[in-house]
């Protein structure tokens, strides 16, 4: 991701999360209870980690360098003082 140079959006989070997920997977691999269901434990837990990482990574990356910005016309003036948005 050489694009990270041009602005300072945090791409490192993607790699950090990947390392964490990989570490978790390794832990799960060895921590799964022994027995005939070991494969079930491993596949479900590691599968979940992979899927959840993917899902998070995709939404995170989609917002890295947004091409459009949120627009709204229903804001009241006092909303800005609280730093939030009233619905």
């Amino acid at each position: 991701m050489e694009a990270g140079k041009s602005d300072n959006a945090t791409t490192s989070a993607i790699w950090i999360a990947l390392v964490i997920c990989a570490g978790l997977s390794v832990v799960v691999w060895f921590a799964s209870p022994k027995g005939p269901d070991r494969l079930v434990w491993r596949s479900v837990l590691i599968g979940s980690i992979i899927c959840m990482y993917l899902m998070w990574m995709i939404t995170y990356m989609a917002q890295l360098h947004p091409l459009i910005a949120p627009k709204r016309s229903d804001l009241r003036a006092e909303a800005f003082h609280h730093g939030g948005v009233s619905l």
Partner: peptide, 8 residues
């Protein structure tokens, strides 16, 4: 997604 198109 990784490229900042607006900055470029």
């Amino acid at each position: 997604w990784g490229v900042n198109w607006i900055a470029e």
